[in-house]
Design a protein around this nucleic acid. Structure first.
Lengths: 331, 331
DNA sequence: CTGAAAGCGCTTACAG
DNA sequence: CTGAAAGCGCTTACAG
C-alpha cells in the first residue's frame, strides 16, 4: 500500500506508540485514503477477544431499562467495548440462545439484568468462562459482582410513608413470585407493617406480573374487598398505573379514598393523573457502575469482595397519589 | 474425537443431509457430550457472512420501538439470523460507529428505523456493500426497500375527525423539522385543513421534538393564545400526553374545551386521563415485513420495485380525548 | 522500530 | 459419503 507490512498497519491501528512518527503518518494517511477497516471477525479470532459485552434484559419493551442501557453503553464505549443486547421476552425459552452466543466466543463478558444466570440445555452461563456481573436484579447466592438498590428498605419506607398518613389497612400488588425484586419488596412491605404496629396477616396480597394489565386486574379485586384497603403499594410503576386508572374509572378518588405507591420512577409516572408517588431508581448509575465492574473483570482483574456488592439509594418521590387516610371508612 | 475429521463435524452442524445417518449420529453424540460450540468469529471469517443484522434505532428509550424490534427478531431468528442494536440517542454523533461496524464486516445487512442513511466521516453506509432496508421512517430518495404507514393520509384523517366534531380552530405540535414523520404528518395536517375548508395559514403551528417535555411546552404556548384553538393534533403520543397533562393541570377540560389527537398508539395512551385518541401503527408487522425484505436481500435476491415500497395501514383509535367543539368560545 | 511467519478455528472446493 | 488441505484476515511472539 504505502510501503509497509501488514504487521505495521496492525500496529499503527492498535498501538501507535510502537511506531516511528514518520511511519505512523504514512500508514494513517493510507488508511484514510483507502478507507480501510480491519475485519472484526479476523481480529476476534486471532486476538481471542471480541471487545463486546452482552447485556441480558428480561424485557426490552420495559421503559425502565432504556436509561440503564444508556449508562452501560456510556461506560463500555469509553473503553472501546461494544454492546450486544439479549432480550428474554420475560421468559426462559431464550436463555439457551444467550448461553450459545457466549460459548461461541462472541462476547467477553455478560451483564445480567434478569435476576438469574441463564441456562441452556445442561449448560449454565457460569461455565462459559467469561466474567458475569448482575445489576438491578440481584442473583441469589452469586459470587460475581452485583449492583442494585435497597429494595427491601425502600418497601419498608413506602409502608412508613403510608402509615404516617394514617393508613391502617394496606394492600400489596406483587410481581412474579420467583422474581427477586418481588421477594425483596414484599419482604420489605411485611417488615414495614410490623414496624408500624400492623399485622401482615391482616394485609391484602394481590398477585401480579409487573404489567399494566396486572394492575388493572388487581384494582378490580381491590374494589370488591370489604372493608376496602385505603392504601396500596404496587411492586412496580406499571402495575401502580394500571391500578390507578382502573380505580379512578370506577369512581374511586385517588388519593381521597385510596393512596397508591409504585416503584422504579419511570418517566411516565409524572404524566398520569394524579402523578404517582414512587421510588426513583438511579437507572443510569446502575448501568454505569455495573459496566465499570464488568470492564475490570474482562481485563482480568479480580474484584475484591468488598467492592462486589454495590447498593445505590432509591429515593422516595412523594407526589399526588398518596394522601391522608380517609376519615370515614367506606361502608 | 469420535472418529471423523473436522470437515465432517462442520458438515454435521451445517448440512446434516450430506452425511450418512450413522456418521451423523456419532458426531451429534460427541457434540452433545463435549458441549462443543463452533467459534463464530472463525465461521464468520471463513464463510464471509456474519449471520447478523444491524438494527439502527433513533432512540432505544422510546417505547414505540420495542414491539417493532420484537417483530424483527421473530422474523430474523426464524432464519438463523441474530440482531445487533445500534442506538443513535437521537443524534448524529453515533452514526460513524454504525458505519464502522458494518464496514468491519460484523453484519450482513442493516435495518434503518431512523429515517436517514448513517454517515461516518466521508463514508456513507450506502457504500458499505450490505443490503439496507428502511422501516417506520422512510428515507427520501432511497432505492432500497422501505416499509412504513400512510403518515400523510393518517394526519389528514385526524383533521377530518376533528372537523367532523365541529372544530374550526386547530393547532399542530410538530416533531424535529428535518424528520420525515414530522414532514409527512404536517403536510397531511395542512391537506386535511384544506379538505375541511379551513385555511392552514390560520392554524397554529407549535414546535416540538417528540418528547413529553415538548408537549408540556406546547401546552403552555397554547394556553396563552387568543382565541385559543379548540383542538390539537400532536405528531406523536408522547407530546400529546405531555400536552394533555399540562392543559388539565391548568384547569382546561379535555375534551370539553380542548380535543387532543396523538400518533403511534403506544400502550401508555390507554392509561392517561382521559385516554388518548391516536393512530395505532402496526408495530410488530412493520418489523416483520422489514426483516423479511432484508432477509431476502441478504440472501442475494434483488427486490423488485413493486415490492420495495410497503405501506401498512394506521388505524384511528377514537378514545376520550376528542369530543365536540365547545359551543361557547372562550373569551 | 519493522518484517516474515505462524496460527486463531472454522468452511468448502477438490479428490477419491 | 468423507478426508486432506487451503485459506478467510488479522495479531503477535520472534528475529533482526
Amino acid at each position: 500500500m504505502a510501503g509497509v507490512s501488514t504487521a505495521t498497519v496492525s500496529r499503527a491501528l492498535s498501538g501507535p506508540a510502537q511506531l516511528r512518527a514518520g511511519t505512523l503518518a504514512r500508514v494513517t494517511k493510507a488508511v484514510q485514503q483507502t478507507g480501510y477497516r480491519p475485519n472484526i471477525a479476523a481480529r476476534t479470532l486471532r486476538a481471542g477477544r471480541a471487545m463486546l459485552a452482552l447485556v441480558v434484559v428480561p424485557d426490552i419493551a420495559n421503559p425502565f431499562f432504556s436509561d440503564v442501557l444508556r449508562g452501560i453503553e456510556d461506560t463500555l464505549s469509553r473503553q472501546g467495548y461494544g454492546l450486544l443486547i439479549g432480550n428474554l421476552d420475560n421468559g426462559r425459552a431464550k436463555e439457551a440462545k444467550i448461553v450459545d452466543v457466549v460459548r461461541a466466543g462472541q462476547v467477553d463478558g455478560v451483564l445480567l439484568l434478569n435476576g438469574r444466570v441463564p441456562r441452556g440445555g445442561n449448560q449454565s452461563l457460569l461455565q462459559a468462562g467469561v466474567p458475569l456481573v448482575a445489576i438491578c436484579e440481584a442473583v441469589a447466592g452469586a459470587t460475581f459482582p452485583q449492583v442494585d438498590v435497597h429494595n427491601r428498605e425502600a418497601a419498608r419506607a413506602a409502608v412508613a410513608h403510608l402509615a404516617a398518613l394514617g393508613h391502617r389497612r394496606l394492600a400489596y400488588v406483587g410481581g412474579p413470585p420467583r422474581n427477586v425484586l418481588e421477594q425483596e419488596r414484599q419482604a420489605g412491605f411485611r417488615e414495614g407493617l410490623k414496624a408500624a404496629g400492623l399485622d401482615p396477616a391482616q394485609a391484602c396480597f394481590l398477585p401480579g406480573d409487573f404489567t399494566f394489565t396486572a394492575g388493572t386486574a388487581a384494582a378490580t379485586s381491590l374494589l370488591a374487598l370489604q372493608p376496602r384497603p385505603t392504601a396500596v403499594f404496587a411492586a412496580n410503576d406499571e402495575m401502580a398505573i394500571g391500578l390507578l386508572r382502573t380505580a379512578r374509572r370506577a369512581g374511586l378518588d385517588v388519593p381521597g379514598r385510596l393512596s397508591v405507591v409504585g416503584f422504579d420512577g419511570i418517566e411516565f409516572t409524572d404524566y398520569v393523573e394524579p402523578t404517582l408517588t414512587t421510588f426513583r431508581q438511579p437507572r443510569r448509575e446502575l448501568g454505569q457502575h455495573g459496566a465499570a465492574l464488568l470492564l475490570r473483570a474482562m481485563l482480568g482483574e479480580a474484584i475484591p469482595p468488598n467492592e462486589a456488592r454495590l447498593r445505590l439509594p432509591a429515593a422516595l418521590l412523594v407526589r399526588d397519589s398518596t394522601g391522608p387516610a380517609p376519615k370515614e371508612e367506606p361502608a
